[in-house]
Each structure stands twice: as C-alpha cells, then as structure tokens.
Design a protein around this nucleic acid. Structure first.
Lengths: 201, 201, 201, 201
DNA sequence: ACTCACGGGACGCCCCGTTAGT
DNA sequence: ACTAACGGGGCGTCCCGTGAGT
C-alpha cells in the first residue's frame, strides 16, 4: 500500500500546521483556510483528508498526545551508567518533559494547554483527555511505587493519588510559565522542591 | 439628564451574560449577539454600554477578578472565636476559595481559566492578569510571613516564591477538577497536604 | 428673540464641522456622530438642530454656496483706484475665487465638488445646485456683456453660453487640481489664457 | 481542473453590476450585497471572485478606464477616406468620446466622475487615476504636435499643457452635463469652439 | 485524488432615527 | 432645549461544508 504512507504523512504535515497556528493564537486561530495555507496546500486538499474541522482537531490532539507520551516514556536518562536509575531522577526527568523548558516543549505545552482548557468546557474532549491523563498518571505512580519498594517514598502515600496531584501541579506551572507568571527555571525548581517532600531518601 | 438608567448595574448584568456564555463554551462562545440574547437585550443596547467587544471582555474580566479578590480577602474565618486565626487556616480557606468547590466558585473558576488560557496567547491580557496575580501572591506571601514570625513556617523558605508556587498548584488543580481529572474534594485535600509540607507546627 | 441668534450660530458651527469632515473623506465621511464629535457637542444636540441627516447636508450646502457667492460677488478688486474695473480683471478675480488657490478656497472647493458630483446622481440635489449655478452664470455673463459694450468682447459671442462654458471649465480645473492633475497655478493660468480668447482688447 | 468557469468573464459581469450601481447612487451605493444582487449571485460568490471590496472597486475602475481608453484610441474616424485625418477632427472625436453623448458614454461618464470625486479624498486612488490621465494627455498632446508640424497649431503652445487643460475642460463639461447644467450638445459645441482657439487653420 | 465554485451563516462594527425622560 | 437609551438595519469580512466536475 504505497498510497497509505503518503496519506499518513500528509495528515501529519497538516497536523503540524495546526500546531503552529495553535501555538500562537490558540484553538480559535485554527481555521481550515489557515491550516491549508500553513501546510502549503489547497483548502480542498485539507478537507479531503479531514472532512470536518472537528476531525482535524481530534487528529491534531491525538498526535500531540502521542508525541508527548513517547517523550515522557523515554526521557533522557539522567545517569545512563546506572542500569536502574533512581525513581526520583526518573520522575523529575519525566515531569520536566511536560514543562515548556525549550522551544519544542513550549510548542507542545501551548498545544496541550489549549486542548486542556478547552476540555474544561467540552465534555467530549475531556473524555478523550482522560485516557492520556490516566496513562501518564500510571507512569508516575509506578515510579512512586518503585520508590516505596526502595524505601525512599513513605508507604503511607497513595501512589495514584500523589501522581494525580503531581500532574495537576505540573499543568498549573506550565500554564503560569506560558502566561509569564513563572520563569521555566522556577517551574522546574518548584517541581524539584515538591519531589523533596515525597522522597525521604 | 435623561432616562435614568443605572449604568453600572446595566454593565454588570451584561457581564453576567458574558460569564454564563464563558462557563459553557469558553471565550469563543462569547459573541456580541449571544451576549445580548443572554442578557435579554438588543445588540444595540449592549453596544451602547460596551462600544467594542474588547471593552466588554475587559470589563467582564475585571469584574470577576474583583469578585474573586473580595471573596479571597475575606474567607469565612475557620475559627471566628480566635481573634488571630492561624496562618495555615487562613491560607487553606483562601486557596479553597479559588477551587471550584461549589457552583459559584465553579463558574468563577471556569471564567478564570478561560481568561488564563487566552492570556497564554495574548500578551496584552497576560499583562492585565499579572496584576491580579501579583495581588493574590502578596496575600498568600503575607500569611507565610506571619507563619514564619510565629515559628510555624521554616525561615529558609522564600514567602514570595512559595506563594507563587502555591498559586500555580491551585490553578493546576482547578483546571483538572474542571476537566474531571480530580474531584473537588481531592483538590482541596491536595492543597491541605501541600500545606503540611510548608507548616511545621 | 435672544434664543434665535444662538440657534442660528449653533447651526452654523455644526455646518463647519460638516465641512471639515467633507474636506477629508468626502460626503460619505459625514455621519451624525462624527459631526457631533467634530462640533464638540452631543449627537442628540445635532439631531435637535437637524432632525435628519438630509436636512443637515442641505443646510451645509446652502451655507457654503452662500459663502462662495458672497466671495465671488465681491472679489478683491484687482485695481481699487479704477472705479470701473475692467471686465476681464473682474472675471479673472471672480473665477479665481472658485479655484482652490489657498487653504480656505481649497476647503470650499472640496465641499463644492463633493456636492457637485453627488448631484450627478441625485436629481434632487441637482435642482438645488441649478439655482446657485444660474446666479453665478448671470454674474459672469454680465461682465461679458459689459465687455461687449466696451468693445473688448466680440459681439457674436453669446454671453450666457460663454459664461456657462467658463463655469464648466473652472469646475473641471478645480477637480483636477484637487486630484492632483494640475497645480493651482496651472489652473489659474489656464483660466487666464482662456480669457485671452474671449477678450480682444 | 474543476468546474470550468470563465473567471475573467465572471469578474467582468460582476464589474458590470458595480457600474450600474455607481451610475445611479455613486460609489457609496456600491455594497458587496448590492453588487451580488445586481449580478444575480450570492454574496459568497462575489467574494469568491473579489475577496475584498477594494479589489472589486479597483477592478471595476481598471475595466472602465481600459474601456474608455480603447474607445478613445479608436474613435470613429470622421473621414475614413482620408488616410491621414486632420488632427483637429481626431481631437474632437477623441474628446467627444469622453462626453456623455449617448447612453453608453453617460454610464462611463458617471462612473468616471464617481471615481474622480473619490480620488479627491483618496490619495491612493488619485495615484491610480494619474496613470490613466497621463496616457490620455499624451494622446491629445500627440495630436497637437501633429497639428504643429502641419502648421495648424501655433508653435508657441505647449502641447502637454494644452492637453492637460483640454482634459480638465472636458471633465468639467462632463460633470455639468450629468448634473444638468449643460445639454450634451452644448458641451460638444463648447469643445468645438475651444478647439477653434487652438487651431489656426 | 483533488479542485474549484458556491451558498449561507455568523461576527464585530457602524450608523441612523425615535422616544422616554428630564 | 437637551439628553441618554435603545432598536434595528446594514456593511465588510471570515469561514465552513457541500457538491459538481475533472
């Protein structure tokens, strides 16, 4: 199926155009025409791949969620010589991937925030977000459980609960950084400090 | 003088219509026509009080910010018999006012989040938000300083910094509650737990 | 009737605001609101003196026509020592008053042209203009007749006809000057040259 | 390629609708909706061919200018048997094309006048007009030069200058005819008489 | 597979004229 | 005499989705 590949990559390149529009202007800056222009193709072509705007946005979201998930699952190991990295380091690296610490991550963050806050008024989107959120939460909870097994995280903490809290924390910091209330460094430091309250090691 | 109309209350009632639209649908659900319909007026009348949409939104924001500020400054004192309430209790009550714990606060939260998101792509609005944010931050930092004077907050903490972090935390929780990732109770509990890490008393 | 005076001067000052708007922006730049703003009064007040926009424009036109007529009837006599100025000089002075040779006359010219060209599509206004035009034509024809009596204008010329032609000529030059096709000096020179073809003296 | 629609003819037919509206009502009678109605199309269709009103008006102007230019360049030769027509006859025929002597030319005249008036307050349009004016002026100056070579036009006349004056004259007459101050015949006669003053033959 | 043509709806803004109320 | 309030209509622009056509 030689065409399929083209199809997929075409959709991907359209999604990129969506992201760029979202990064500056938010969700409401995304119009089929602008996307087409941004992707360097005709409006009709965009509509061919995404019959409706909703599908386009849904796809754009899925793509960015997947991308973030990939990055989060395999953060640059802080200490590659250690075959079994310390849970705290893994956690910090993971969460740092969610913060807008460089240009790439800022783009992702802006997109994520746009979808997230849109979900606050769109139950349908909220449902979709819940899945991605659950996965992330599990990832984090796992590290906390590893920490508990290693004795560096108090056993009385509920990993799932703490993971959920951590994610809310990160999202709050992300938004504040984007708005300009925090510097990215402050945000990372705040996460680091918070981890100190979880890890007794 | 002409007809005798309370300009202020008129504008306020228009702002209410704006809020209702924002609560379900976000900022992009707000159109002059919808606002007029929501307020039970003609479009011309709305424009009489708010010549441009920007002014309307600016006013709507100022109003909700003021309203939240009022509520935050005078939270229901947890223990009215104590003339000098404990900083931790004040803080918890203050921050709880920002969470969508009941219908009123949910409305405010949704509106705040909508503006916050928009600020991520609108520097002009971001600037306006910064002022409100600074006030809130000071309020919280003050309580932390009080705690330091009383010896219940470690002196090595920077009040301003911690306050800023707390606000980001609260905003993150707020969004997650609105999206449905958290229950309101979880959010409040998370705040409570976090305060435990600040207060040693 | 002490109020009447106020009434009249008020209307005059409103007309001035109309002119200023017309001078830059043409007739379509004139709106009741802008006029009110330009005159430094409330919209309601303007509407009090001119219930409808048509009346306002009609008045503004009458005023400018009258003003031009006054100036044209009493041009600065080119040679005041001569009790009976030469018809050619009178004519040149008269016609020069219609050209946009200085700021004041440019204002009048712009207004006149705006009304004139509007009359091309508004029979009602055209009728009104005809009166003013007839007066002007008579004025000029009179000078030509004086010239004929003095023997400096050929008798075979029809004064009325030549007068009408002269006015068309002046209006054409005026428009072209305003548009920038001519300089004001060129226009005046062109008139002067044309008079040479009429006066044999 | 899709539907096969003659873009050019479509745009032309829209321009026709613009002209009809301009002929009665001037430029301000032209609205996108009225044009659409006049052309028997939907508003969306008009916008498909002219994204903005400015482009529509610019095109409408260019078209009429071109049309007039064509007609002026190839006036019905007064005496086809003469291979080298006399400059005076050519000039009269040329200038007569600019006067509203029949229905077609009246339409053109009204449109031209409308644009001309607008140019008096719109420098941008004035610049565009200047080009067309310059071409016309050259055309006329050429005939005058031919006359000079033939010895029927005095050598002391500046062709360019006289051409410019002639055009102003014609425009003035045109406006006056449209307003009703002149009959078309009077206007043509006035031109004829004026040419007598230029040609000594 | 891809494109253009097209209709229709919405939006922010502007403006006029009327009227209720000093 | 003068004002603010108000309704309603219009305008230019934008955008989406459909479908006829290649």
């Amino acid at each position: 199926m030689p065409k399929k590949v083209d199809h997929i990559s075409r959709r991907a390149s359209i999604a990129v155009a969506v992201w760029q529009l979202m990064a500056r202007g938010g969700l409401e800056a995304v119009s089929m025409r602008h996307v087409a222009a941004g992707a360097g193709m005709s409006l009709g072509q965009v509509q061919h791949y995404f019959p409706t705007k909703d599908e386009l946005l849904a796809f754009a979201y899925e793509q960015v969620a997947e991308q973030v998930a990939d990055r989060v699952r395999a953060p640059e190991t802080p200490d590659p010589t250690d075959e079994e990295p310390r849970p705290r380091d893994v956690l910090l690296a993971t969460l740092a991937e969610l913060l807008p610490l460089d240009e790439d991550r800022e783009l992702d963050a802006q997109i994520s925030v746009a979808f997230l806050t849109r979900a606050a008024v769109s139950p349908e989107l909220a449902t979709r977000l819940r899945k991605a959120h659950a996965q992330l939460q599990d990832l984090i909870a796992d590290q906390l459980r590893r920490g508990q097994r290693r004795g560096v995280v108090p056993l009385h903490l509920e990993p799932a609960r703490e993971a959920r809290t951590l994610l809310a924390f990160v999202d709050g910091l992300t938004v504040h950084v984007l708005v300009g209330h925090h510097t990215p460094e402050d945000a990372e430091q705040a996460i680091d400090d918070y981890l100190d309250t979880l890890f007794t090691g």
